[in-house]
Measured scan of single mutants.
Amino acid sequence: ITGDVSAANKDAIRKQMDAAASKGDVETYRKLKAKLKGIR
Rank of each mutant, 00 (worst) to 15 (best):
T28Y: 06
Y29D: 00
D18W: 15
A20M: 02
E27R: 07
A12K: 07
D11Y: 04
D11S: 12
D18K: 15
L36Q: 01
M17N: 02
K31C: 15
E27N: 05
I39S: 06
V5T: 10
M17A: 02
K35L: 15
L36M: 04
K35H: 04
G3A: 09
R40K: 09
D18V: 14
V26E: 07
R14I: 09
L32E: 00
D11H: 09
L36G: 00
T2I: 10
V26I: 13
G3W: 06
K10T: 13
K35G: 01
A8T: 12
K10H: 13
D4S: 11
T28G: 04
K31N: 02
S6T: 11
L32M: 03
S6D: 10
L36H: 02
L32V: 00
L32Q: 00
K37E: 14
D11V: 09
K35E: 04
I13W: 05
I1C: 13
A21W: 15
G24W: 04
R30E: 08
Q16R: 06
A7F: 12
I13P: 01
D18P: 00
K33N: 03
A7N: 08
A19L: 14
K23I: 14
T28S: 06
A12N: 07
N9K: 13
D25E: 02
T2D: 10
E27L: 05
V26K: 08
A19W: 09
M17E: 01
D25I: 01
K37P: 03
V26H: 11
N9Q: 13
A7I: 10
K35P: 00
K33D: 01
I39L: 14
I39H: 06
L36D: 00
Y29W: 07
S22E: 11
A7Y: 11
I39N: 05
M17T: 01
A7V: 09
A21M: 15
A21L: 15
G24F: 04
A34D: 04
A20P: 00
A21Q: 07
G24Y: 03
K10C: 15
D18Y: 15
S6W: 07
R14A: 04
A19Q: 07
A34S: 05
M17I: 03
A8E: 08
I1H: 11
N9P: 05
K10G: 08
K23Q: 08
S6Q: 11
A20I: 01
V26M: 15
A20W: 02
M17W: 01
R30L: 13
K31S: 03
G24H: 03
K37A: 14
K23G: 04
L36N: 01
D25N: 01
A21Y: 14
E27T: 05
Y29S: 00
R14Q: 08
I1P: 09
M17V: 02
A19G: 02
S22W: 06
G3Y: 06
D25F: 01
R30H: 04
I13F: 03
R40S: 13
A12P: 03
S6N: 10
I13R: 00
K10S: 09
G24D: 03
I13M: 04
T2H: 12
Y29Q: 01
K37F: 05
K10F: 15
K37M: 13
K37H: 11
A34W: 04
T28A: 10
I1R: 07
A21S: 05
K33M: 14
E27P: 02
N9W: 15
Y29F: 05
D4V: 12
G3M: 11
Q16N: 03
N9A: 13
Q16K: 06
G24P: 00
D25V: 00
V5K: 11
G38K: 14
D4E: 10
R30V: 03
Y29P: 00
D11T: 08
Y29V: 04
I13Y: 04
N9H: 13
D25K: 00
T2G: 13
A34V: 05
R30P: 00
I1Y: 13
K35I: 15
K35V: 13
K37V: 08
I1V: 10
K33I: 06
I13S: 01
I39P: 05
N9E: 14
R14T: 05
T2V: 11
Q16E: 08
K35A: 09
D18F: 15
A8I: 11
K15R: 11
K35R: 08
D18N: 11
A12C: 07
E27M: 05
A12D: 13
A7T: 09
K23P: 01
N9Y: 15
L32I: 01
S6F: 09
A7M: 13
D4K: 10
D25Y: 01
A19I: 14
L32W: 03
I13L: 08
G3L: 10
S22Q: 13
S6A: 07
L32F: 03
A21K: 14
L36I: 03
E27A: 06
D4Q: 12
V5L: 12
A7Q: 10
L32S: 00
G3T: 09
A8H: 12
V5A: 09
T28C: 15
R40N: 13
A8S: 10
E27Y: 05
A21R: 14
D11R: 14
K31T: 04
K23V: 11
I39M: 13
K33F: 11
N9M: 15
K15V: 07
A19V: 12
K23D: 05
A19H: 06
G24E: 02
Q16T: 02
M17R: 01
S22G: 05
D18R: 15
V26S: 06
A34K: 08
A8M: 13
S22L: 14
A20V: 01
K33W: 12
D4F: 08
A8G: 08
K23L: 07
I1K: 09
K33R: 11
A19F: 08
